[in-house]
C-alpha cells in the first residue's frame, strides 16, 4: 500500500559537465522518458533533465484510463515503469530547470542555471502548461481557492461547493473526480455543448453531484483572504450573477512550453514546435516529442510514441557521420 523505495537515481550525482552527451532530453514526461528509454537502450549517452517531477502532466491527474497498458487507470505506475526501464539502460535523470538553450552548431548548449551542458542532439519534450482564464482575481487567488490541478488540491475542498471552468475532457473528467470530495461541482462552460468525449460526459451527466452552467463565462473571481465568489455572465441573456464557491478549478486548455525556443526553432502560430514525421525540427540534431509538438492528438501513448521516434532518429543523426 505504501511506497518505501529510495529513488536511487535521484541521489547519485547526476550531471557530467565535462562530457558532450549524445542526447539531452528536456522534460521527463511520457515523451521524455520514452525517448530516454530508447536512446539509452540504443547505447547513447543520455540525460533527461526535468524541472519538477517525472511523469509530467500524468503526475497531475488521478485517472489515465485510455493509455494502453495502464491497468486500472494508474498513470503513476506506468510512468514508474518507464522510468525504471530508462534508468536500467543507463539514462541519467537530472532534476533541474532548463533556462536557456543554444541549438545551433554540432555541439548544442543547455543552460540549467547552475551550469551548462553540452550535447550533440536535443530532444524537446517540455509539454504544455495550464492556460489561465485571464480574469480579474485569478492571480490574486491562485493557490487560495483557484487551482489548476484537482488531484493536487481536490481533497482541500471536502464537503464544499466548487466550480470547474471548461468543457473538454480534462474539465469534465476532473469534475467527476472532484465529486469524491466536494458536495457539489458546477461545470461552467462557455459553449452550449460540452466538448468532452461521450463516455466522460455520460459519467458526469449521471453524477448527481454535478451541475452544468453552459453558455456561461466567468468574468471575475472575488473573495477576501480566499476566493469565495464568482461573477458569471450568461452569454445569451447577458445577465450577470454572483455565485458562491468554495473553490474554482480551471481547465480551459493548455499552452506550449516553448518560450525557450522562440527564434531558434520553427513554431506554429500557437507556439507548438513543427516537426516532420521523424520528429526532426527546423534545426539539425534537434528533435521534439509529445504535447509540445504540433500534432493532432495529445495523449500519453502518442507522446511516448513520439519519444521513441525522436530517440531513434537522434541515434541515426549521430551515426550518420
Amino acid at each position: 500500500m505504501f511506497d518505501f523505495r529510495i529513488k536511487r537515481e535521484e541521489t547519485v550525482p547526476d550531471i557530467d559537465r565535462e562530457a558532450v552527451y549524445d542526447t539531452v532530453i528536456l522534460g521527463g514526461g511520457p515523451a521524455g522518458l520514452a525517448a530516454g528509454l530508447y536512446a539509452a537502450r540504443a547505447g547513447l549517452n543520455t540525460l533527461v533533465v526535468e524541472k519538477a517531477v517525472v511523469g509530467g502532466q500524468i503526475a497531475l491527474t488521478a485517472f489515465i484510463e485510455n493509455c494502453p497498458g495502464c491497468i486500472e487507470g494508474s498513470g503513476q505506475e506506468f510512468i514508474a515503469y518507464i522510468q525504471k526501464q530508462a534508468t536500467k539502460f543507463g539514462a541519467g535523470i537530472a532534476y533541474r530547470e532548463v533556462v536557456g538553450v543554444d541549438l545551433q552548431g554540432d555541439v548544442k548548449t543547455i543552460d540549467t542555471r547552475d551550469g551548462k551542458l553540452l550535447t550533440r542532439t536535443v530532444i524537446i519534450g517540455t509539454g504544455v502548461s495550464s492556460q489561465k482564464l485571464g480574469v480579474p482575481g485569478e492571480e490574486q487567488y491562485r493557490g487560495k481557492g483557484v487551482s489548476y490541478c484537482s488531484t493536487c488540491d481536490g481533497p482541500f475542498y471536502k464537503d464544499q461547493e466548487v466550480a470547474v471552468v471548461g468543457g473538454g475532457d480534462a474539465a469534465v473528467e476532473e469534475a467527476n473526480y472532484l465529486t469524491r470530495f466536494a458536495s457539489k461541482v458546477t461545470i461552467i462552460h462557455r459553449r452550449d455543448v460540452l466538448r468532452a468525449t461521450k463516455v466522460i460526459q455520460d459519467r458526469a451527466m449521471a453524477n448527481p453531484k454535478i451541475e452544468f452552467r453552459c453558455g456561461t463565462v466567468v468574468e471575475a473571481i472575488m473573495g477576501n483572504h480566499k476566493a469565495n465568489k464568482l461573477l458569471i455572465r450568461n452569454l445569451k441573456t447577458d445577465q450577470k450573477i454572483e455565485m458562491s464557491i468554495g473553490g474554482l478549478f480551471v481547465y480551459v486548455g493548455m499552452i506550449p512550453n516553448t518560450k525557450l525556443f522562440e527564434g531558434q526553432l520553427r513554431l506554429s502560430p500557437e507556439g507548438y514546435i513543427i516537426t516532420d514525421e521523424k520528429m526532426a525540427t527546423s534545426v539539425p540534431g534537434v528533435f521534439a516529442a509529445g504535447d509540445i509538438r504540433q500534432t493532432p492528438l495529445r495523449q500519453v501513448i502518442t507522446a511516448a510514441a513520439d519519444g521513441a521516434i525522436a530517440a531513434t532518429y537522434a541515434d541515426r543523426y549521430i551515426h550518420a557521420d
Partner: peptide, 9 residues
C-alpha cells in the same frame, strides 16, 4: 504521519 513515498527519502 507515515513518511511514505516522497517523504521516505
Amino acid at each position: 504521519g507515515i513518511p511514505a513515498g516522497y517523504e521516505f527519502p
